[in-house]
């Protein structure tokens, strides 16, 4: 079993590097289905630049030593890309989180964006901050940012629990645009019931690729698709074999 896991990791890495190469990208360009919520996010970025309003990204409260933190890593990649896309605005994005490690990383990402886009004078280290260390204190602490008059769009990406309801309801009430995505099933169902733009399941992991972040993101999305077919095929084959009494 360990060998299979190791093999999957090696094949996924090789596949990602393979699809990211320039030649393969030209030969097999990735084809994306339309995800309405991400299309609206792109529009919201444009509107925030035009209006001179700010975007707020919140990353959840998963610890960096927790397996659930990949959704927060996607949140950080998205924060980076949002910062780049809104660099023509004088209002860089703000970021809140419920974990110390994520807070430091969000500060780092915001600083990196300010260096890349030559907007160092707009960088404020407090634009990335912790709002609380328990789920509810994190949600209540973020209320202040969610309700700031200068914030007109909220992007909720990360690992949330039931406190997701506070984020989505406050955001829907106070801002024009909310995009909600989580790897937690509980948060996904809460987001679906309380917001308009929700990403379900693996759609969360497609955000950086859809925001045209880098070839590696596009390649990794292609590999995910291939793996999904393989897993689906294996499940169906397993079910048939079980029915036939072979397994």
């Amino acid at each position: 079993m360990d060998f299979i896991g190791f093999l999957i990791i090696i094949l996924t890495t090789a596949g990602t590097i393979f699809f990211a190469s320039k030649r393969i990208r030209a030969k097999y360009p990735p084809v994306f289905r339309k995800i309405a919520a991400i299309a609206k996010l792109r529009r919201a970025i444009g509107l925030s630049v035009e209006d001179g309003t700010r975007m707020h990204v919140t990353l959840g409260s998963a610890s960096l030593t927790d397996p659930a933190n990949t959704s927060a890593l996607i949140g950080l990649s998205s924060l980076h890309r949002l910062g780049q896309l809104s660099s023509t605005s004088d209002q860089p994005p703000v970021c809140t989180s419920g974990n110390g490690g994520l807070t430091l990383l969000s500060k780092d990402v915001l600083k990196a964006v300010s260096v890349e886009t030559n907007t160092r004078e707009l960088f404020d280290p407090d634009h990335g901050h912790l709002t609380g260390i328990t789920p509810f204190s994190y949600a209540v602490g973020a209320f202040d940012v969610l309700r700031q008059p200068g914030v007109n769009a909220n992007v909720l990406i990360g690992n949330f629990g039931t406190e997701a309801g506070f984020f989505s309801i406050t955001s829907e009430t106070n801002t024009d645009f909310t995009l909600a995505a989580s790897d937690s099933i509980t948060a996904q169902s809460i987001f679906f019931a309380t917001t308009r733009n929700v990403l379900i399941g693996e759609e969360l992991y497609a955000i950086p690729a859809y925001l045209a972040y880098s070839p590696m993101h596009l390649a990794s999305l292609q590999v995910q698709d291939i793996l999904r077919w393989l897993v689906g095929g294996a499940l169906i084959a397993g079910a048939i074999l079980k029915l036939l009494g072979i397994l």
Binding site: T13, T16, D108, S214
Partner: peptide, 25 residues
Amino acid sequence: ILLGIALGSLATGIRVLIGSDRPYN
């Protein structure tokens, strides 16, 4: 849903592992 999330987590982890995603600047 969890299968999709697991595959997404795997791909994200690999991107960080090979240095493609660098949230640590």
